[in-house]
């Protein structure tokens, strides 16, 4: 892929189609973990890591096991006449890939780097059901990206997610001191904040809001 295309993918994933503010992916951790800055950073790092890995592994799974092309492994192993079209199994395949990947990463980090495990460990189990991860693998497939494109989109989408999370956490830490009307405290005001930030992010698209 051209460098220019990769740059467009990156800018789009971080700012224009930000996972939180525009695509609405990964909202549960966004509302749940964005109360304190350090946990937001931890969660963000874990998401970037798993998203990049998941994007690459999901591409390999799709390309060599699901797509009806001559690079399909079943086509060679079972000596089929035509390559099988298994794309309908994408949801089940990707979610299993992500679930086992998260387990695996957790095990490896625990063994190799106790410091990293301490920082990311508690966030990893939450990630399996984070729709941002499955979301990015499905988006890569929908957009027909190649391997490099998928990895770049996975990494930069994670960056965009972290950016949103960190921004939000910083605001919420200050919000603790503010005099918010009682019924709006907690989640409701967090949504209002997200709405206001989403308006700011609309600016990146260069669109006019009438």
């Amino acid at each position: 892929m051209e460098l220019k295309t990769l740059l467009i993918i990156s800018v789009s994933a971080i700012f224009i189609n930000n996972f939180i503010f525009s695509r609405f992916l990964g909202l549960c951790p966004y509302i749940g973990v964005s109360k304190a800055l350090d946990s937001a950073v931890g969660m963000g790092m874990a998401v970037i890591f798993v998203m990049t890995l998941a994007s690459s592994v999901a591409w390999v799974v799709d390309h060599f096991l699901l797509e009806p092309t001559t690079s399909n492994l079943f086509y060679h192993l079972l000596r089929l006449k035509t390559p099988p079209d298994l794309v309908f199994l994408k949801t089940i395949a990707f979610i299993l890939v992500i679930a086992s990947l998260v387990q695996f990463v957790e095990m490896v980090i625990q063994k190799t780097s106790p410091a990293l495990y301490k920082a990311l460990g508690i966030y990893l189990p939450l990630i399996t059901t984070n729709c941002a991860i499955l979301g990015v693998t499905l988006l890569n497939l929908d957009m027909g990206l190649n391997f490099i494109g998928s990895v770049v989109q996975g990494f930069t989408s994670g960056l965009g997610f972290t950016l949103a999370l960190v921004l939000m956490a910083s605001i919420r830490e200050r919000l603790e001191l503010a005099d918010v009307p009682r019924p709006m405290r907690g989640i409701p005001i967090a949504f209002i904040m997200a709405g206001l930030m989403a308006i700011a992010f609309l600016g990146f698209s260069g669109l006019k809001i009438r």
Binding site: F21, S22, F24, P181, P183, M184, I187, P188, I189, A190, F191, I192, A194, G195, L196, A198, I199, L202
Partner: peptide
Amino acid sequence: PPGAFLTIGLLMG
């Protein structure tokens, strides 16, 4: 997108 956040925030409140 912003409309979705604002609406659900106000409804929950």
